[in-house]
Amino acid sequence: MVFSVNRIGPGLPSFPVSRLPIPGPFPVYDPAFMTPPPLEVRDLKKSFGGIVALDGVSLEMPPGEILGLLGPNGAGKTTLVRSVVGRVVPDSGSLRVFGQPPEHPDAVASRGWVPQEISLYPLLTPRENLWTFGRYQGLSGAELDSAIDRSLEWSGLADRAKDRTSSLSGGMRRRLNMAAGTIHSPKLLLLDEPTVGVDPQSRERIYTMIAELKARAVSLVYTTHYMEEAERLCDRIAIIDHGRIIAAGTRDALVRSTLGVNQTVRIDADAPIAPALREKLERVGAKVDGLRVLLLADDPPKQIRDLLEAFHGENAGVADLTLKHATLEEVFLNLTGRELRE
């Protein structure tokens, strides 16, 4: 079975690619007329020992897009990212960064990477760290100086430029980690869980930095297991599990294609649900889990009325009732049968 991501504009429906009727849905680029995409991955496979990390991943992203890679720990997100930055050599498949293999100097120059770990020198100052990684990316002289000043300003660390990095807060170090990965102004940036362990205030700051990158038309691959983040930041989301991309598209498209509806009704009963009531609820399509009743809603007014009539008919009480948009969490649950954070 071939998985890949279909390139679909915002607002248009998207489908888990395993359900697509035609295999190999890759847009055909003619190098003579078109700029190569920032990232193009085809049928990428990688195993470590007997453990399969990537099992035929295919994806492609247009310039300026923020592509979210959403999946639980161990799903293959980091292996995919490390393949793109040349730190993992795939067993098979192909991978191109702006049309070049990852080790090509042009690919190296045009991509940036912000690893999940704080990969900095703790005893150096932020300015010294940025100088170091700027030099490693080939910058020098006035170009390097202005890149450092710009990065310090962008990350909000200009006033801490001469402090030791180890004395910075966790959030500041995260921002410096991002600045070190973007010092050379890459056109494609891979962000690996940049908000892990960050307080809400710093997280907002990081979101602002990402928005500024998007405004500069930087293409972003953003790995996370926070679905709220993926929903908020990403133009498109690829759900990865067991080394495969199992669905991809915009948030709304994923919800519609996976769940068929965009909203869910939830009722919390005020007492244990009797068998007779359970039977009535299940008859209208609801799922009963303890005191909780869940129903995917394609016609919310009618379905809410049906549910409440069932409660009323059995003289059962309702403690709470909510109608909300379906989340990626529910999409993931539906696709894999597991919670995203398992």
Partner: peptide, 13 residues
């Protein structure tokens, strides 16, 4: 151990 080596080797070094 800190992942800095990975980062360095992903650059031109």
């Amino acid at each position: 151990e800190t992942g800095t080596l990975d980062r360095i080797l992903s650059t031109r070094v």
